[in-house]
Design a binder for these strands. Structure first.
Lengths: 229, 229
DNA sequence: ATAAATTTAGACACTCTTGTCTAATCCGTC
DNA sequence: GACGGATTAGACAAGAGTGTCTAAATTTAT
């Protein structure tokens, strides 16, 4: 606290490294074993840290769990909004651009470590922590769905799509993009890049059959006969 | 074993009642608390049975769990095949008939007690019992998806739909029908009848915009302007 | 009624886990 | 090289859960 630029309350650097390592390990273990099945020694071992250090940092098992979920929610939301910002507002090739967007969404937000962990924790412990997951619901789906819907509304307004209800279309877009990954998600697996691309391609083609303009600008008819594997 | 019609190995009637009551309670508790979080006393209390009786019937906690999952898998599969048999092969009103089918599928197989429990157990414990859930995968999705796809293929062949890949179309059909229920499912909730109907209606409309014949028989154009809430 | 089977409550040993405590040790800074 | 905060290993008490056992009570069929 002497002539250090950083004011106070900043412990040494190793401290933060431990904290991060605990968060990593705890996410992994809670996700794999569920809250009740996880034990602190397992987390400590996986984090390469002593049990006492975990108690020093987080107080008790439940507080640790809540911290993990908050952390994952924040990181996932950030990823989703970052990905939404890459939405093709002025598509060159509508089908290709939407497929690429769907793939980005899947790879960076839904199939990655954080997305997988958060999804599993919500599914497994959601009913036990109603207010924690109500928070997630507001911050997550409550903000991301409208943001995606707004992008589709803009695309429709610009004449690229024929959409009545952008909220419904947004939900259907992602449902279609993930249609072939459901079983893998159920069992906690991670789909391969190829599976993600397949599902997104089929999903976007169907989406455009439903919502694409019949004669949009110039090159919208060319896809109609592609049915390759 | 004297002049009883049923040969042997059939214990008194109360026995089966206890067994059913244990299965019910165990499903409920395992689903609510996860395998590690459930305890035998809880199940015994909820079943109105003594702890020892559970051990008499099932041996130990893990065997009980496996029995529950097998039982749920069987019952859910039966329900799904029963519902598939109501698929509209000769639709009078294609949109209405497909919506009704989607609603039946949801209410009788996905949102009901067994469907909800099985889904949660698979999500929560799937990774811990690979061979048990591999079994589910073969018996469940492995047999139901092709069955649904076959029905769509038939519908397409009869000229009602314009489908290239029936397997993809079948998956997309259910993905669309459930598109608006995902968040509720995530948190373990049960959607209301109205939510199910809404989601199915929007989903089927989009499905038909993508795969409906442009001029099928007589009355396919009439739906295009319906955008009710 | 009576005999066989089943269920029950309770006690029990055993194991595992949580959360605390202590004394030793590490590590970066002065 | 000494200081101070953080970390560590290990012991520890308290509590909870599993699976077993026993003797009594209850049910079911004869």
């Amino acid at each position: 606290m002497k002539h250090d630029v950083s004011p106070d309350s900043i412990p040494p650097r190793g401290h933060e490294a431990k904290r991060a390592s605990i968060m990593d390990a705890a996410g992994e273990v809670f996700c794999r074993e569920s809250f009740a099945g996880a034990n602190i020694d397992m987390i400590a071992a996986e984090a390469g840290v002593s049990r006492q250090t975990i108690y020093n940092h987080h107080g008790d098992k439940e507080k640790l769990f809540v911290a993990i979920v908050r952390d994952l929610t924040e990181r996932c939301n950030a990823g989703i909004f970052a990905t939404i910002s890459t939405f093709p507002d002025q598509p060159k090739d509508l089908e290709a651009d939407l497929i690429a967007f769907a793939v980005r969404m899947n790879r960076n937000c839904i199939c990655n470590r954080d997305g997988k962990f958060l999804r599993k924790l919500i599914q497994t412990e959601g009913e036990r922590y109603p207010e924690l997951f109500a928070e997630w619901r507001e911050q997550g789906p409550g903000r991301t769905w409208p943001a995606i819907a707004a992008r589709f509304a803009r695309l429709a307004h610009a004449g690229f799509l024929d959409i009545e209800d952008p909220d419904v279309a947004a939900r259907q877009f992602l449902a279609l993009a993930n249609a072939e990954l459901q079983t893998t998600f159920m069992l906690g697996g991670t789909p391969t890049d190829d599976e993600v691309l397949q599902s997104a391609t089929h999903g976007v083609r169907t989406f455009l059959r439903a919502f694409g303009k019949r004669q949009p600008a110039a090159d919208a008819q060319k896809h109609s006969a592609l049915a390759g594997a």
